[in-house]
Design a protein around this nucleic acid. Structure first.
Lengths: 335, 335
DNA sequence: CTGAAAGCGCTTACAG
DNA sequence: CTGAAAGCGCTTACAG
């Protein structure tokens, strides 16, 4: 029914040259005379020739595809994955510009074999790791089997691998400074998991900002959640109970911040009149929340591009990059 | 550095059989004696053998990968794509169970060549179309080039292709009936784009519910947006101005519903005391909105599974399926 | 039940 | 600058 696809051999016959020459023409080989190259390319274009990629991959021994790996199937995607979704957008764009395909892969925490199923089978050349749970285990497994990858997040000290991360210290500092600048003095820190390096960085920034303003740090002003909206709500309640006098809260994610604002409102606090809140990430929901959220932007467009580019670079010449993306405060209504 | 991957030939040598036999063993060929098959499989397992997929694909002339196509790069992913994200989750799971890979592809509205870049190159066997803008154009182009695909949404009358869609009529009816059951009488319809078949279906359901309750339908009670939160807000304002007496609103998406609730609140209406609102889709944000949103669930888990399964089925034996997924009302606080 | 051989559609030394 | 040939790692008629 559909006319069988043409191959490089067909084009060669039509052009009166060898397959090698066609291949070279299509691949911009410097060996060819400009004239033959153009002649062949024109012919290919005219016949709407599309090269057969699996054959190319077999021959070149590379898959020209990158796997984007996120958490497993036990949880479905939800708002909680908005961060992943937004960064995916820019990774995908960059990869496509560089003529790479993007595969979606979901790993379950207990699976340690997944990497081989992609690398050794030649289905992917490398991984972009977005998974948060058991991240360290996955990283060790990948290092162990010598699989190329890059991860979003602060690199584990003592290991060498590619990473890109936000500037968590500055982020914490920027958010807290802004709150202080608004005249707030009883600023609470609503963090992600206490054991994550990202969270620790933001906390240090928070502390530094207090200190440079000559303000006292108090342990009772800090609480840790797990980035989810439910934890945002419950930790906010906890913090509110321990700090009835609070006048601002610096939250480690937009999702938690939005949940926290609901809690505050239920407790009769007006935002930002009674308490200012600043979030983290500048996801698309931050714009449409009520009130619109002041937040620390991680610039996911740049982050995604770096993740893609640097992984490809590593694939090419083995240079391991660790980059940290600058953050920026986006001021809206909530603080 | 890493020991070179073993091939089928290596396994054959180790097992003292031919490559053909190894291939057959790995592919569960009925030709083989159970004993040799198990012997070879055990050996492969023990040596951690992974087959080289691009070679397999070249030989079999199928890519065993499906492309998930969404809108292009001019817009980044955002909350507005939550629907896509949530359905992707279940598609991805199903595909992976059936040993297919999932490729992400983004198309720009003006690009009509994209399909060939995946089918003719052998990078994908078929498409799952989630793109909303210019959907009809894309569908025609795909039909035209005879590319296998399935789409989420009501099929265009007059064309034959695979689709899965929600039961829009029943959805509209269910939501409206619920509102009527709560004693509401001045129910406004806040729709998606008026020219989409989905929206028309929901509207008919709305109208039918009014009629069966003996209520009068009034044209001034309906307004159309484009599913975005901004349009949700502005159309809500418009409807409020034309219907100051409204006591309920049936909204065509959760995103618009959440924006509409903000508008209503700003106008001094309490939800659900003064006005009840029901949304559509039952995305994860519906649970965490304030108040939690009563909404029509499209059951994306089933929808995604059907999209994947039915496309593969079509690939296999060419049967075109058009399925409509049942909807269900999820009652929370907003109505 | 098993193997030798051809073929899938490319790329790339090697030779000229 | 160009071509003939070998090879990438599988699958699958064909023959036995």
């Amino acid at each position: 029914m559909t006319p069988k696809n043409e191959t490089i051999a067909d084009i060669a016959r039509l052009a009166g040259v060898s397959k090698s020459t066609v291949s070279r023409a299509l691949n911009d080989s410097p060996l060819l005379s400009l004239e033959t190259r153009e002649r062949i390319r024109a012919l290919a274009r005219q016949r709407n020739f599309q090269i057969h990629v699996p054959a190319q991959r077999l021959s070149r021994k590379e898959s020209s595809t990158i796997a984007f790996v996120t958490h497993g199937y036990h949880m479905d995607f939800s708002v909680a994955d908005l961060f992943t979704l937004e960064i995916l957008s820019s990774i995908s764009r960059t990869l496509s510009e560089m003529r790479y395909d993007l595969l979606m892969v979901h790993v379950t925490p207990d699976d340690c074999e997944w990497a081989a199923k992609y690398i050794d089978t030649g289905r992917a050349d490398g991984f972009i790791l977005m998974t948060s749970t058991h991240k360290t285990d996955h990283i060790k497994a990948l290092l162990n089997m010598n699989a190329p990858f890059i991860v979003w997040g602060v690199p584990q000290p003592g290991y060498s691998y590619c990473s890109v991360t936000g500037d968590n210290f500055t982020g914490g500092q920027l958010g807290t400074r802004h709150l202080i600048g608004q005249g707030r003095r009883r600023i609470v820190f609503l963090g992600g998991p206490a054991d994550e390096l990202e969270v620790q960085g933001r906390f240090e920034g928070y502390r530094a900002a207090l200190q440079e303003a000559g303000m006292l740090f108090e342990q009772r002003r800090v609480g840790y959640g797990n980035f989810s909206d439910t934890s945002g709500a419950s930790i906010m309640r906890y913090l509110l109970a321990r700090n009835p006098d609070l006048d601002a809260v610096f939250v480690n994610s937009d999702l938690m911040a939005i949940a926290a604002m609901d809690v505050l409102r239920e407790a009769g606090r007006r935002i930002p009149e009674d308490v200012s809140v600043v979030g983290y990430d500048n996801l698309s929901i931050a714009e449409v929340s009520n009130p619109p959220l002041t937040t620390v932007s991680q610039n996911l467009a740049i982050a995604g591009r770096q993740l893609a580019r640097n992984l490809l670079q590593y694939l090419q010449d083995g240079v391991v990059t660790n980059v940290t993306i600058p953050v920026e405060l986006i001021v809206r209504k909530s603080a």
